[in-house]
Design a protein around this nucleic acid. Sequence first.
DNA 1: ATCGCAAAGTTGGGGCTCCAACGCTCATCG
DNA 2: CGATGAGCGTTGGAGCCCCAACTTTGCGAT
Lengths: 262, 262
Amino acid sequence: MTVGYLPNTATWGNASHEPPRDGLVATSDPVYLRVVEDIRRQITDGTLPPGAPIPSRAQLTRKYQVGETAARHALRVLASEGLIIGRVGSGHYVRERPDLTPLHRWRFLDHPASFAADLQSQGRRVTWDWHSEPVEAGPTIARRLRLPESSALTRTRYVYRGDGKPLQLATSFEPREFAPHSDDERRSLVARLYAHGIKVTEVVESVHSRVPRPAESDALQLAAGVHVLHIERTHWAGDRPVETSDIVIPGDRFRVTYSMPL
Amino acid sequence: MTVGYLPNTATWGNASHEPPRDGLVATSDPVYLRVVEDIRRQITDGTLPPGAPIPSRAQLTRKYQVGETAARHALRVLASEGLIIGRVGSGHYVRERPDLTPLHRWRFLDHPASFAADLQSQGRRVTWDWHSEPVEAGPTIARRLRLPESSALTRTRYVYRGDGKPLQLATSFEPREFAPHSDDERRSLVARLYAHGIKVTEVVESVHSRVPRPAESDALQLAAGVHVLHIERTHWAGDRPVETSDIVIPGDRFRVTYSMPL
DNA sequence: ATCGCAAAGTTGGGGCTCCAACGCTCATCG
DNA sequence: CGATGAGCGTTGGAGCCCCAACTTTGCGAT
């Protein structure tokens, strides 16, 4: 069935065909954008509340008089924007966006796991495990710790979980001579360094957003399209960096807050 | 790891064609993912440096023995991740990612435009303009300022530009009676409030990452797939919030840094 | 040696179709 | 009355094709 190809009515110039027909024209060039914009508007202005079903591909083609490709493309764009989420066999729905749990970075500053402490203070059960191993600094970390690239460091990787689900990854780098040897020593970085005659005076954090690396996406069980917040934290003793770590958290579930007294 | 799925023998029977042929098979479920993962790996490990050309659709179909749809889909995914960028008529290229300019949020705390001050201290020319208008608080801002929803506020929208290009959007909300009436008053929020007998004691910032709203994407001239960093900043006088603003910056060009003394 | 132009290649918008895995609903059977 | 299963609808992967707008390249003419 379906022999030869039909003319394929106007891919580009559908000038003469129909009068505007749909409310305000807008005539925005790509057809799928008309669909995207219309649905996006309905989501942001609340016409379609979280959980509401989005018309299916078939329905969209009818409603907006577009081909299946366009309908499909529109849905994919909205999904990659995180506005809707598709469930196979069921349909697309307006994404319930979990409200962003605040992480109060300035409290619990010297705590074995400030992250866990903060969440626990919010009544969540947080567990974590870690793994330490000796490494060489390498270019990036060497620059951050102002050490030669071949410096002997201890790298500790942490995985934090809330009620089983992974919430945060952290990787800490510190000169090997400072590394903790017991669980007790691990408790406080500041106390540990103090025992070596080093007084930590300042903690600097640098926050940026990026696409998760595949391993992170995997470890944090991230949905497609969600970014991560990457916090580079460095402990300083005067003008000397003594420890640095990379903290990675799902961008769709957390916000980090900082308080600065005047 | 490795969640693993089912066999998935070629959907539309070209089953018998050729033997695996390509290095380690991996057989990861969707075909397009094989392409995505391979290219992503090459980009992240530096095999494909920034600016390097990505094989075209046609070349990908040959190289990976996939259909055009899959090749296309792979490229779209990589583009929406911000790893590559497509130029019509030319090809796809590994995205040059501008290194992240740090914004030192704790310096210049009470400056008319801490943002501009920071960048100017880095030797950039920053200009900005603003527009004020009276508004009602509305649910969100009312909560942030702990005021009734119908409170009379002044909203000021700022657009900051560096060498002409837009870099940051900011929207500030403050009770109408505190709003500046002259350029001079605008200079310092803290001084202005002090004139009303209010002593700002603390600035709290909450950082999260999200997809830009269309208007923001437009105003900041964002490429597809880049997120924004959204900073909610509130000035507090004791336990009373006196001003709050939303600061939006391109997530692919900036990082925000905070310093916390111990 | 340089200019101009045509051919070839590439992206991005669209179109159509097939199919597997899965969800939902409803009627039928025990 | 409750469980079960068939059928329909929906997503998502995949394939193929057409075309407009644009870049790049290489060739031939000046």
